[in-house]
Design a protein around this nucleic acid. Sequence first.
DNA 1: TCGCAAAATTAACATAGGTTAATGTCGCTC
DNA 2: GAGCGACATTAACCTATGTTAATTTTGCGA
Lengths: 257, 257
Amino acid sequence: MSDSSLIQLLIRKLENFAELTDEEKHALHEAAGPVRTYGSHEDLIREGEQAGGVAVVLSGFACRHKMLPDGRRQIIGYFLPGDMCDARVFILKKMDHTISTLAPSSVTTLSREAILEITSRYPRLTRAFWWNTLVEEAIGRQWLVSIGQRTALERVAHLFCEIYVRLQSVGLATPESCEFPVTQSELADTVALSTVHVNRTLKELRRVGLVSMSSKSLVIHDFTGLRALAMFDPGYLHLEGEGLLKDRYSHVLLKTL
Amino acid sequence: MSDSSLIQLLIRKLENFAELTDEEKHALHEAAGPVRTYGSHEDLIREGEQAGGVAVVLSGFACRHKMLPDGRRQIIGYFLPGDMCDARVFILKKMDHTISTLAPSSVTTLSREAILEITSRYPRLTRAFWWNTLVEEAIGRQWLVSIGQRTALERVAHLFCEIYVRLQSVGLATPESCEFPVTQSELADTVALSTVHVNRTLKELRRVGLVSMSSKSLVIHDFTGLRALAMFDPGYLHLEGEGLLKDRYSHVLLKTL
DNA sequence: TCGCAAAATTAACATAGGTTAATGTCGCTC
DNA sequence: GAGCGACATTAACCTATGTTAATTTTGCGA
């Protein structure tokens, strides 16, 4: 795939909010730099660094995470293909967290200048970026609720629902499975449990026939049950879309949700 | 105070990011609707409703919170005076959480139209809104880290540091105290602990001489110790400012931090 | 100033999830 | 196709925090 076709995933995502003109799409294509590939567990940007631009994950899995001085670590968000790393933090002077790959990934970057240019010239595109930010924030709020209020089982189930639906929304899930190239110990840092307890929890989810996490992927045996257990309500992902995505993907979403 | 002087607190905040022209300030003044006052524990906007505009808290304390279907509740953010409720969610169709007062508060609203007008006409002001959003997000990330990784004691201490510094940055704290009109059970819903354990934790913080939470306010006995315990690094609040606030308030901040 | 209701405090007891420390398994590289 | 390192799994035990249920204190309207 060429670079310009790769950025399509991002455009798809943004069009969930607003239909974009050809000029706007063109501006996005122009903005994209070369594609870089990373291995597993490489840092894209580190805490304290200044973000030079906005990274867009084309394939693979990445995450934001923060560490306390004594080494405790919390993963605070996942980047799935099509996700934009920060139309945001690049405004601030320093990253307050690190972004790293979880699996081998390919990434392109929209330069700072390109973003400034775009946001000053295309108000609708700017609002689409903003919308994207808002959805990410909504996800963050859910994570806070999960970690604060849900039990271990509910928490893991909720995360699995979210990942599955997000991947589905960009066409990267089958009716009963999706990629999930995440280690149990990384999962532990995500849901704020110990590795051992994550293992127990996965065992239980398997035992009751809801999901199983095999090597690098998730097999969803009973999405309805999983959803109920997790009290997962996909509304916060705002995938019903005022834009194009509704027509393009809703059949997939509606089938499952 | 007149409405227009009340909105000053918001302008102060935004100027932390970028100096605003008189025209831009004027636009903000124009955008502000009438001031409404609320009692304790009233809802400003409820989950599921469409936000009509952006609320700005002029005085008092408010919070965002979400409830699970079975009643468990998580408070996901505080609004202190000068804080803007959502230059954000108003873009989306429905609120995914509720905003309520914690204490009697006065609030004004920037209408949807006014915000759209502003964001299409004043790119710098738009970026200032964006910056504000980013700081809020950074706060959210810290909360996630706190709830996920910090112990009860550290968690409460961290929250106290944050509130104190935020209030200080808008001139609403003395060298050793600030308002904190929050109930222990609301605090419990904030830091994801039980009421009983919050009580134990406060007792311990008092015992070791760091802070005490008396009725509706916080008395900081040893900020340095509190900071150390919480591993609080104020950088994420981005108060060093590229804008005006640096000059106006840094003496206060620098003294303590 | 009395009388409540809401909020804080405490004690006794219960448990979800953490810790430590083996052991087992899988996927590589040589 | 043996050997190594990363990852997963399990068991036994431990502790931070939750729960229940009084009891006390506080703030406040009549």
